[in-house]
Write a protein that binds this DNA or RNA. Structure first.
Length: 465
RNA sequence: GUCCCCAUCGUCUAGAGGCCCAGGACAUCACCCUUUCACGGUGAAGACACGGGUUCGAAUCCCGUUGGGGACGCCA
């Protein structure tokens, strides 16, 4: 049987990091088994669902490179079908109309709380004659759930989980306005869409019991389930905004590469021996549910940064330069763009994110004169300035303008002056980059070119006195 | 509160009874490389939550305790 998985987000916000991982696992599982990965937007909450959220989710999935098959299913559009199934259950005596008012339910809730028991609908309309129905009250449709025995889930990650049916009550299938509840629509949609494997967050594990009861009532074969643990914040508690509960677009803006985020998310809760850097091809080949861990894991930016740095260094210079030019608003300036491409080799070993890369690259994009920072200014006073003045003459006469030769010039100069190379290189760095740290300075000179280099030295020498 | 789930270095994890006085990665620290900062290299420190069993032998199996998480809606 062909594997069919799905990602079923509700469009009430961005595609957050936990959802992204759920989508990734579903996608990998389907691709690994040569199956189908589908997308269903659960937009039945008309109040909270927005068009913007739908777009954010779709953009996020595309950015992450998680492509889905077939058409996207919008759950709300299927409401008539959900109602139809509920009616069928009513006809077969598997469901019933319940006329209890919200007030009555509140009373039950409070009574249950006072008694230290969980809220359970007491089934007061379960076997009542429909003729008793009060007028003017629109009923909900409730499932006639089994009252004894137990319901068991054979979960691919959590193993066999069982619960006594007394713990469960008769849940609402259709609201009094005739719209389906989440529990009901999920089951009908998964069935109709031919989903074979439901892979979702751990928070749905207890929902599964109730959903299983609907499958049983309809005599449908349930899919197999896999509940993956949730992602927590660094403190072990629920992931907060501050700690990473952000939309994937926020990660893009912070300068993370989609391949790095994918690799990071994959390793969160799943492992393959000692492998850390895992390409998408390998992931598809290796991924399976049996290696998914059962405990929740904590989100760690430091590890994401490290992974991102790794992928950054693998990425070709043009792509990086283009992103940097965009971030620094200099895209289209070909001189600058060429400089960025030429300087990228030295730049990319020094950054963890594209954002950091852009900040480090800024000095390449500046127009003279630069405004050196405090530490750089300190390099440009007194001795530093004198060294630069003399070095400038020698550089102006340099026969070539390539890094290795420029370094030889500087070394010869330092030796002649009886100073360490650092005493030459640091003022030079301050003059050319406006800072005390930069890519290798002779590489910077080559990238900047003779004219710009000499000009920046002149600016610095003049300003430094 | 009730039900359900989980538990190896600070973090992510390897480990499916002897290969483990527990391996890798990130982070930390030291050293090397070096014109700065990185990258890279070498090394150090660092964990089986606790208590009982089972077994010749347990990180691995069972029970309990503790700790964490999740679910208890006419939200999804």
């Amino acid at each position: 049987m062909t594997v069919v998985t799905r990602f079923a987000p509700s469009p009430t916000g961005f595609l957050h990091i936990g959802g992204a991982r759920t989508a990734l696992f579903n996608w990998l599982y389907a691709r690994h088994h040569g199956g189908v990965f589908r997308l269903r937007i659960e937009d039945t909450d008309r109040q909270r669902s927005t068009k913007e959220a739908i777009e954010a989710i779709i953009d996020g999935l595309k950015w992450l490179g998680l492509d889905w098959d077939d058409e996207t299913v919008f759950q709300f559009a299927r409401a008539p079908r959900h109602a139809e199934v509920a009616m069928e259950m009513l006809k077969q005596g598997k469901a019933y109309y319940c006329y209890s008012t919200p007030e009555e339910l509140d009373q039950m809730r409070e009574a249950a709380k006072a008694a230290g028991k969980p809220m359970r609908y007491d089934g007061r309309w379960r076997d009542r004659d429909p003729k008793d129905a009060p007028t003017g009250v629109k009923p909900v449709v409730r499932l006639k759930a089994p009252t004894s025995g137990e319901t068991v889930v054979h979960d691919k990650v959590q193993g066999e989980v069982r619960v006594a049916n007394e713990q469960l009550d008769d849940m609402v299938l259709l609201r009094s306005d005739g719209t389906p509840t989440y529990m009901h629509s999920v089951v009908v949609d998964d069935h109709d869409m031919g989903i074979t494997d439901v892979i979702r967050g751990d928070d749905h594990l207890t929902n599964t019991f109730r959903q299983l009861q609907i499958y049983q009532a309809m005599d449908w074969a349930p899919p197999s389930f896999a509940h993956i643990p949730l992602i927590h914040g660094p403190d072990g508690a629920k992931l907060s905004k501050r700690h990473g509960a952000l939309g994937v677009e926020a990660y893009r803006d912070m300068g993370y590469l989609p391949e790095a985020l994918r690799n990071y998310l994959l390793r969160l809760g799943w492992g393959h021996g000692d492998d850390e850097i895992i390409s998408t091809e390998q992931a598809i080949q290796w991924f399976d549910l049996d290696a998914v861990g059962r405990g929740p894991s904590r989100f760690d930016f430091a590890k994401l940064d490290n992974l991102n740095g790794h992928y950054l260094r693998q990425t070709d210079d043009e792509r990086l330069a283009q992103d940097v030019a965009q971030r620094l608003s200099v895209a289209g300036d070909t001189t600058i763009e060429h400089r960025l491409i030429a300087g990228m080799a030295g730049l990319k070993a020094r950054a963890k994110t594209l954002k950091e890369l852009a900040e480090n690259a800024r000095f390449y994009t500046l127009t003279r004169p630069l405004s050196p920072d405090d530490k750089a200014c300190a390099q440009l006073t007194g001795g530093g300035s004198r060294v630069l003045k003399e070095l400038r003459e020698r550089l102006a006469a340099a026969p070539t303008w390539i890094a290795a030769d420029l370094e030889s010039e500087a070394r010869a100069f330092a030796e002649a002056k009886g100073v360490k190379l650092g005493q030459v290189a640091q003022p030079l760095r301050a003059a050319l980059s406006g800072a005390t740290t930069s890519p290798p300075i002779f590489e910077v000179m080559q990238v900047l070119g003779r004219e710009e280099t000499l000009g920046r030295i002149d600016d610095a020498v003049g300003a430094g006195g």
